[in-house]
Write a protein that binds this DNA or RNA. Structure first.
Lengths: 392, 392
DNA sequence: GCCAGTGATAGTAAAATTACCTAACCAATA
DNA sequence: TATTGGTTAGGTAATTTTACTATCACTGGC
């Protein structure tokens, strides 16, 4: 379904053109990696000779991928070196989130990763199909930011559900009309952009990559206002699974050896319903699960916190034993409401791997931020792969 | 601990030398991928011009990596094309397994992946340290096969335990002296070879890659004679975890919500002890867990099989929900003893993902085969990376 | 049934192309 | 005046294109 024809060999071959492509790719990579660059710095990074570095740079300027950004303020002898940057407006990355009952958000970033515009809108998905809603808000947002929608090269969408890339369908989604839609196909037809659809927890997991502590790989236990999920980001990239349904801890039975009729899952035992029930048992009130946790922390209800932390630690032990990740991030609205207090209790219960449990390093909407980060990474990869190397 | 200095940029750059290296690498890759190759076939695979293909081939011959293998039996007009092959004796890959109470096995394969020799030996690890035992048997085996031990470029060792590459230590190992050893360091000093140490279940998982059905990724539930384990091989390579302790399902509590004193783990509930206990309860006898299963299958004890299959399916559901793998392989001595019968029962219990559960496709010692496959893959990678490209 | 002619294929040789590197040079600046 | 940024000129190394030779199966006349 994905690709046709035989796959290209993993080891390329070619002639002088390939060499030029390689060197231009390398230069572009360093340019995207370094904010600003002079010819001399490029020379040092790539090891190319002076005339070659010069030539490669002028090719990048011609193609519009690089732009000049003044000259160095020379404090050494000699002329001032010309400074180059990536052309931030060469192409844009967009991200959208779909949530119930919040509606949708859209954000657009330039090639440098700077957010240019964002907007949110409540949507009644029974009245407006999700794909139309995203399209409308994306067009409006790009207009506000003064961005030509045709320059948006990637669009990543975070949805609450499991996206199956092979069939272009979304499973386990509680948004009306979402499971019947072929979202990627329909949006790709309207927009020119490359569309990717991610699970919301996976998007939040990408956002946690901003934490330099988690560079070696991380697993996120997402304790959301409603649902529960796990994001796995180890070695190279997200683990999404065959049908995009990896990390669905919520569907796992807590006690498979008990063949009772109720058969509680981790969602029942650890998710929002469990928090509400635990709150009632301990006399702690709140409108929703995060509120209950905030109240518990405020009141110093250590019995409640111990009980809940024990459950969280049990889930973490499962993840630690199966995946042995360098870091386990506690994230989501409930975890945020629990704050350092909850984290401390969980660490106490986690015993041997407590030091690996860290709080979320993301401020703000992790799902939206992660989706935009993901779209931006994808954009850079695509620019690197396609914008050059189509020489004679 | 692993590398010093700044990492090289992921996008290389270079001059004509690089180009030649690239093309020779490509040729070598195709040569290793294709058993035999003529210049014309190489031309078609790489897209290189005729004289270049010729030149690259003669370089490979000079370096000793390729050898001639006669000429084609021309059934078309024109001269017979010269046929080339990888020089199978250019370098060798070795594998070893350490098991209690079986002792150690050693196997050696040539660059083409053909097994040249293998041997097994019972070892009293309290008398002979594991690293010395491996070294001795490896030297003896290579002597028997007439292979210069210096040409053994990779050695992969499968051990029952979690290998931590950073500290070069093995945890959770029940072989005397194994946890005190720095096995890689000590063997690397004696042998010139590159040493890798794998968990035994992970080695068996590599062996399952031979099954073309599992090309999209697989997870192995290993029901061994003694222990229980999970091998995860998705997207890119094995998931080993920070301390090599990924896949240790045996240590996971079955029912975290029950805070009883016994606190049974999956090992207790699904491993060899559980099989023995279940056998006693159903009046089925056997010397060890596989024997009990074989007896149950022979007697058609469907009550026993249903009960055990229900437990296996519970573990599989956990793996399916967390990892969503394309295939789940049932392997290990217990699973083999249960055969198609057990598989059928498990599939019935697995409901929605039963069709993804497949039997092991490996005949013989999966751990030893996987370790050798792994060593051979590593050998090919290293040859590709190092043998060429050291030009002027 | 034999043997030269024909055409297709394997491989090599020479010239042209492309991109890189070194070395020399010019200009700007502390 | 020495140093640095940048360009120009000439040379090198790898490729490709074009042209050529050698080999071999097939064919058809003798």
């Amino acid at each position: 379904m994905r690709s046709t024809g035989p796959p290209p060999p993993p080891v390329p071959s070619g002639s002088s053109h390939l060499l030029r492509t390689i060197n231009e790719r390398a230069a572009l990579y360093h340019l995207m990696d370094n904010e600003t660059l002079t010819r001399v710095e490029l020379r040092r990074l790539t090891g190319l000779a002076k005339p070659t570095a010069s030539h490669v740079m002028s090719r990048l300027l011609e193609s519009g991928l690089a732009v000049t950004a003044g000259r160095t303020t020379a404090r050494q002898a000699g002329p001032k070196a010309e400074v180059y940057t990536v052309n931030a407006d060469y192409a844009f990355a967009a991200a959208a989130t779909l949530r119930e009952p919040d509606g949708i958000t859209v954000a657009i970033a330039d090639l440098k990763g700077h957010e240019k515009a964002s907007s949110a809108m409540r949507v009644d998905f029974t009245a407006v199909p999700p794909d139309r809603a995203v399209l409308n808000l994306l067009r409006r947002t790009s207009e506000v930011a003064g961005i030509d929608p045709d320059r948006i090269a990637t669009l990543h969408i975070a949805v609450p559900g499991a996206y199956d890339a092979d069939t272009d369908t979304i499973g386990h989604a509680d948004i009306p009309g979402l499971s019947e839609l072929r979202m990627r196909t329909s949006l790709e037809a309207e927009l020119g952009a490359a569309i990717e659809i991610h699970n919301d927890v996976n998007a939040a997991t990408v956002a946690e990559r901003r934490n330099p502590e988690a560079a070696g790989g991380l697993v996120v236990l997402w304790l959301g206002r409603e649902g529960l999920g796990v994001g796995i980001d180890l070695q190279r990239g997200l683990l999404t699974g065959l049908h995009g349904a990896a990390g669905e801890l919520g569907y796992v039975p807590v006690s498979p050896d008990r063949t009772g009729a109720d058969d509680p899952t981790f969602q029942d035992w650890l998710g929002a319903p469990a928090v509400a029930e635990l709150g009632r048992a301990h006399g702690i009130e709140g409108d929703d699960a995060p509120a209950v946790l905030a109240a518990a922390v405020g009141e110093g209800a250590s019995d409640f916190l111990d009980e809940y932390a024990t459950r969280v630690a049990a889930a973490l032990r499962l993840l630690k034993c199966l995946l042995d990740p360098p870091q386990i991030v506690l994230a989501g609205e409930i975890a945020r409401a629990g704050g350092e207090t909850l984290l401390g209790h969980v660490r106490d219960r986690a015993e041997d791997f407590g030091e690996r449990v860290i709080p979320s390093a993301v401020y703000g909407d992790a799902v939206a931020i992660g989706a935009l980060d993901s779209a931006h990474d994808d954009l850079k990869d695509r620019i690197l792969d396609s914008a050059l190397g189509t020489g004679p």
